[in-house]
Design a protein around this nucleic acid. Structure first.
Length: 577
RNA sequence: GCGCCCGUAGCUCAGUAGGAUAGAGCACCGGAUUCCUAAUCCGGGGGUCGCAGGUUCGAAUCCUGCCGGGCGCACCA
């Protein structure tokens, strides 16, 4: 709908060369916005004010010229110049009526834009370490990433979703050791479980199902353990287990634990409506030689040097605080080396824009990885990182304490079971990603008017209910008749609803561009409010068939848009509540 | 110490590449149902947009400094 106004302005501008020149760098559409006050019309443009300086004319003179050169347009009622030089556009009812027809015609495609070839987007999110179940913080990453992915697709982009599985390195050895120790415990071996191990109940579950071929009891594993801090003790135990069980057997335990946890995460997310096109294994980077290949490219850039026996990446050249080690003195590659290799691989696979959704504690990582990309012949700007701030759970007004150490953290599963998937998906994205989230469990699970999820779903269910009532009264909705009678929709509540509906495509575009799902949440709340207000003010199923059919056109359109928006959020749109 | 994010109503937060009198929910007060679901609606009070400067026709929004809160600064992953 905004394009109607943009076209009119564009065409007027084209006839005024002296202004068109000044506006060369200014997309006309970006000057147009919805008005906040209905007396200012439907859309307003600040184009004249923006051109005043480059064109060296007064804003009001510019506005006058623009308006004088506008061709007549059926969609337009009138155009006014107001205030310091705003051009206000008043659309006719016909523009809204045709928008309603478009909504019904396009159905679930309404608000979706045509495919854009560029950029091809790789969206990486969650990527939690496969050392235990997802907790509530990961849930926010999942809900945010999934919704941003849906928004980008609605805006026409091709999006691939990926989960990076950190299945390499020391933490995997600790995982394997933890499982083996629980397996020993189950066979009545007596020892104190080391502090540095993973001690959640899920480790016992995995141990209970352990099926490694040559696994056997090492009853002297803890004999003569040297003193040391918890990391040294863990490393010593890992070394002993590897030597005595054999590397192959230890690796088998480790892989079994990894796969069990990874599968659990995948199932958890799938139940949450979050799926991925690919689970990218960090191990595969090593086995396929990609880390070495990336390091070779990086070294050719001249941004790698040796110091103290290690190889360092000159990250400070790319805005990082300090240079970063990529290969340690002991020859092991760092996690940072895998990260660079992974992101290099993403670009090599043909993705133009890499969006990473990360926890807020990863902010130090942005300039580093971006710098790596730049050094390897791509651009730091190819990587866009969306940081998501932490989640605090509140129950009964009290903050719920979360402790990973004790294994007593709140898992995503527990949260989903407590408040339901719909409320969880909704609440997670209802705040800006860079705002801390206070998740109030009592509100999220209350089946009452306190709960904004129900408020929106209820609007959808109510519309469905109206159509059920219609059938019960042996009436049939004649949509063609309704479309022909849309001129009867003159009530203020009807106009308000039509206006909000017509905003949907603009809002989707905005939310996608800004990776800001909260716009959609707020929009749906507004839309539901407009519908509920209308519902309370006027009956839809009236005796006058033309009016009835027209009103049913309007609320059908509302149903379509609410359902489309909820689908993007990953929230169900119930027919009845 | 350095870096990133945040500071808007009593509480939780929106606020669109700067735009016209700053919005919503909750809470509080007062109303609405012989009629399509009251999980609803209508009305009301509530604000020095952390503070101080700057940029300009115009700043909650951009810039600088300060104050307050969160997070991060490994040859860990």
């Amino acid at each position: 709908m905004k394009t109607i106004v943009a076209d009119i302005l564009d065409q007027s501008l084209a006839q005024l060369p002296e202004l068109a020149e000044a506006a060369a760098d200014l997309p006309v559409e970006s000057t147009i916005e919805r008005t906040r006050d209905a007396s200012h019309g439907d859309f307003a443009s600040n184009l004249a004010m923006r051109l005043a300086k480059p064109a060296r004319m007064s804003p009001r003179d510019i506005a006058t010229r623009l308006v004088d050169h506008m061709a007549d347009n059926d969609a337009l009622d009138k155009v006014e110049i107001a205030g310091p030089g705003f051009i206000n556009f008043h659309l006719g009812a016909g523009a809204y009526h045709s928008e309603l027809a478009t909504i019904l015609e396009q159905g679930e495609d309404y608000g979706r834009q045509a495919r854009r070839a560029q950029p091809r987007i790789l969206l990486e999110f969650v990527s939690a370490n496969p050392t235990g179940p997802l907790h509530v913080g990961h849930g926010r990453l999942a809900a945010y990433g999934a919704t941003v992915g849906n928004l980008l697709e609605a805006a026409g982009y091709k999006v691939a979703r990926e989960y990076y599985v950190n299945d390499a390195g020391r933490q995997m050895d600790i995982l394997g050791l933890s499982v083996y120790l629980r397996w020993l415990e189950a066979l009545d071996q007596d020892f104190e479980f080391p502090d540095g191990g993973y001690r959640g109940d899920y480790i016992r579950d995995i141990a209970g199902e352990l099926e490694a071929e040559d696994v056997r009891v090492l009853d002297d594993l803890f004999d003569g353990l040297p003193d040391g801090d918890k990391d040294e003790i863990i490393d010593e135990l890992i070394g002993r287990a590897k030597r005595r069980l054999g590397l192959g057997t230890f690796a088998e335990i480790r892989q079994q634990a990894l796969e069990s946890i990874r599968a659990d995460i995948e199932e958890d997310l799938a139940e949450f409506g979050v799926t991925f096109d690919r689970w990218f294994s960090e191990q595969s980077l090593t086995t396929e030689g990609r880390i070495d290949a990336a390091l070779t490219v990086l070294e050719k850039s001249g941004k790698v040097y040796e110091k103290d026996g290690a190889k360092w990446f000159r990250a400070t050249d790319f805005g990082d605080e300090k240079d970063r080690v990529v290969v340690r003195a002991n020859g092991n590659k760092t996690y940072f080396a895998s990260d660079i290799a992974y992101h290099y691989d993403k670009r090599e696979r043909g993705f133009d824009l890499l969006i990473d959704v990360l926890g807020a504690d990863h902010h130090g990582y942005i300039s580093r990885v971006g710098g790596g990309l730049a050094a390897m012949g791509y651009a730091a700007e190819d990587l866009e990182v969306k940081l998501v701030q932490f989640v605090a759970l509140f129950r009964g007004g009290e903050k719920v304490q979360m402790s990973t150490r004790s294994g007593e953290f709140e898992t995503l599963r527990q949260l989903r079971a407590e408040v339901g998937n719909d409320a969880a998906r909704f609440f997670y994205v209802s705040r800006s990603n860079d705002q801390h989230l206070d998740f109030d469990l009592d509100v999220a699970k209350s089946e009452s008017n306190d709960n904004p999820v129900y408020y929106i779903q209820y609007a959808h269910a109510r519309i469905a209910s109206v159509f059920r009532q219609l059938a019960e009264r042996d009436l049939v909705w004649d949509a063609d008749n309704g479309r022909a009678a849309m001129g009867l929709l003159g009530e203020p509540q009807e106009k308000a609803l039509m206006t909000t509906l017509s905003r949907y495509p603009e809002m989707i575009e905005l939310a996608a561009t800004n990776r800001a799902p909260q716009h959609l949440v707020h929009y749906l709340r507004d839309l539901a409010n407009d519908f509920h207000t209308y519902y309370n003010a006027h009956a839809f199923i009236v005796d006058d068939a033309a009016l009835r059919d027209a009103r049913l056109v309007l609320i059908s359109a509302a149903r379509v848009v609410i359902a489309n928006g909820l689908t993007i959020l990953g929230v169900s749109a119930p027919e009845a509540m």
